[in-house]
Design a protein around this nucleic acid. Structure first.
Lengths: 147, 147
DNA sequence: TTGAAATTGAAAACCACTTTCAAAAAGACC
DNA sequence: GGTCTTTTTGAAAGTGGTTTTCAATTTCAA
């Protein structure tokens, strides 16, 4: 059984109620899929495919709109990797950055406190107020180096 | 007078010759514009506009193809910012990262040796071989904070 | 000068979204 | 329960930046 899924669903229902929106069966399917472990980065198409296994009539547009709603509710992040590809990930998981294999596309998450601190310094130095950041390291993973 | 422009042009001509490609007047215009100081990030449209002041018949497609060729020759980087927007910048300039204002779009370059070192450690730890990386800090610049 | 091969400009195709719109569903109020 | 207003939905069209196609043009080695 998923751990945090119920909380997330409840949280979203609260958001929906307080914004005059409506809870629908499609949203239920999408949100449950999205927050089901393992927490990961999903392309919209991946989520769509998962959802359609449960309800074949769910459309791309609905998944799209639901994910945007999650982002607006602060319950998901939308990241743009490379050429206009969007990945969505549940928020609330600890902050992390990404290490991406340019050959096989594998994504490894990592976290480094020192980098976070240095970022703060850089931002302060230039008078910015940081809202978010993106750090991606690209290279060949161990497997692909052997090939 | 531009400093490195001549070297760059010569370097590209060598690349072109050794790959069975051809040197054309369009490529000359585009490459000279691209490598003329100040070195910066250019959207394709910006370069196109510059080039057309010199040769009004140059097409988007040609600029596009020439920039891709520069990237393949290792003489330019293509960066994808946000939603599928590409910026090109001459390679060989010192490495730097970007600080981007989410309101006015201003881009500030910065450089930090410590971050570079930590990246190396992270990559090594995960068995990757680093090819390149992207680090972007997003926030409000001083001006936009006041508004 | 010639001719095979690369390049060009214009336009069409692509792709990942994003929006539109008429029909269907939700849910507040009888 | 019904009723009615508002939101949501799926399908399809629209967007915007990029990428490819194709016939005509240009390059450059022979």
């Amino acid at each position: 059984m998923p751990h945090r899924k119920p909380d997330k669903v409840a949280q979203l229902q609260k958001y929906i109620a307080s914004h005059g929106l409506k809870w629908t069966s499609q949203r239920s399917v999408i949100v449950n899929r999205f927050f089901a472990p393992p927490h990961r980065h999903y392309r919209l198409e991946e989520i769509l495919e998962k959802c359609r296994r449960e309800d074949a009539s769910i459309s791309y547009a609905t998944v799209y709109r639901t994910l945007i709603m999650l982002v607006e509710a602060g319950m998901a992040y939308q990241r743009h990797f490379g050429k206009g590809q969007s990945l969505f990930e549940p928020s609330g998981s600890h902050h992390h950055d990404h290490l991406i294999c340019t050959d096989c596309g594998a994504i490894v998450e990592f976290e480094n406190q020192t980098i976070e601190k240095i970022q703060e310094m850089v931002v302060k130095k230039h008078g910015f107020k940081l809202t978010h950041h993106k750090m991606e390291l690209y290279g060949l993973c161990a497997k692909c180096q052997k090939k």
